[in-house]
Computed example of a mutant assay.
Amino acid sequence: MEETLTIKQVAKYLNLKERTVRNHIYDWGFFKMAGSRVWRIHKSDLDLLKKRSDNADRLALSVEEVQLCRSTKETKTARGGLILQPQAVKELDAQLARL
């Protein structure tokens, strides 16, 4: 019989919180044994999921540098948080005033 792991064991195995594992119960293929209230997953299924997430080809593709604008030679986009509408209006007015 194949080894099965509980949510707590999976969390420890993947170094995640139990809540995170519980959020993926249906995505990862957990099941309940007959007459049991405990969710379980086969260790081989978990290893397969882990292998898929550590796919070296996918990681290699995500590291490629993409040039965004040929005229300015930009390679990165500016990352920022959300901006409030009044702040956006004030910054737009300031930029338009400079023109």
Rank of each mutant, 00 (worst) to 15 (best):
E3N: 01
Y13S: 12
Q9M: 03
K32S: 13
L68H: 09
M1G: 08
R79V: 13
T20R: 10
T6V: 09
V63K: 10
I41A: 07
D45R: 02
T77Y: 10
A56L: 11
K51H: 02
Q95M: 15
E91Q: 13
N15R: 05
K17G: 15
E3S: 08
D27P: 07
G35K: 00
D57C: 09
K76F: 12
A34H: 09
K8A: 08
M33E: 11
S62V: 07
C69S: 04
T6W: 06
T75M: 02
Q85P: 11
K51A: 11
A94D: 15
R19L: 11
V21S: 11
R52F: 14
L14Y: 00
R40W: 06
H42S: 11
R98N: 12
E18N: 03
Q87T: 12
G81C: 08
I7H: 01
T4V: 09
T72V: 10
Q87Y: 05
D57A: 07
T72S: 10
F31Q: 00
A94C: 05
W39Y: 10
S36I: 03
E91H: 08
V10L: 04
D47K: 04
M33K: 14
V66T: 14
A56Q: 04
S44H: 14
L49N: 04
A60F: 07
A56I: 12
A34F: 05
Y13E: 14
G35N: 04
R79F: 14
D47R: 00
H24F: 12
F31K: 00
C69P: 08
D93M: 04
A97W: 10
L59D: 11
L14I: 01
T72G: 13
